[in-house]
């Protein structure tokens, strides 16, 4: 396999890996209401940036799945749509979080053999 195609493969696998964590990432930041761009910035600050073009549609989708509730705030000169976790969303987030912690523990054990004690 040439070097270029290895890079491509790694890239596409990384995209898949990250896609699985998108929902968890978003749910984890929405205990308090955020609007689209404020969430983009918040994630950037925490070094977990999601492309705006992915995030904005994702928020709507999660709302449609009843995990988020939204509200237009028109008190400011610029109207903004705020999202936060619904009751169901909180439950789902807690369960996903447990699963994730489990999963990462298991993976640590699985991959521990290779870099055991090296870092």
């Amino acid at each position: 396999m040439t070097k270029g195609s290895t890079e491509e493969l790694v890239d596409s696998l990384l995209v898949e890996l990250r896609r699985g964590t998108l929902v968890l990432t978003v749910l984890s930041q929405l205990e308090h209401p955020e609007y689209g761009y404020s969430l983009v910035q918040k994630l950037e600050e925490k070094d977990a940036a999601i492309e705006p073009g992915t995030l904005y549609p994702l928020l709507r989708r999660l709302e449609k799945q009843n995990l988020l509730v939204s509200q237009w705030d028109t008190s400011d000169s610029r109207p903004r749509k705020y999202y936060k976790l619904s009751k169901e969303g909180k439950e789902v987030y807690e369960r996903l979080k447990m699963e994730w912690l489990n999963l990462s523990k298991k993976l640590e054990v699985l991959m521990g053999g290779e870099n055991d004690g090296s870092d």
């Binding site: 609007y35 689209g36 761009y37 404020s38 983009v40 705006p52 904005y56 709507r60 237009w72 610029r78 109207p79 903004r80 749509k81």
Partner: peptide, 17 residues
């Protein structure tokens, strides 16, 4: 059904950016 709301939200997001 979703056009107007998406447009409004997208406009707000773009202006925020």
């Amino acid at each position: 059904g979703t056009r107007d709301d998406v447009a409004r939200e997208l406009r707000a997001n773009i202006e925020d950016m």
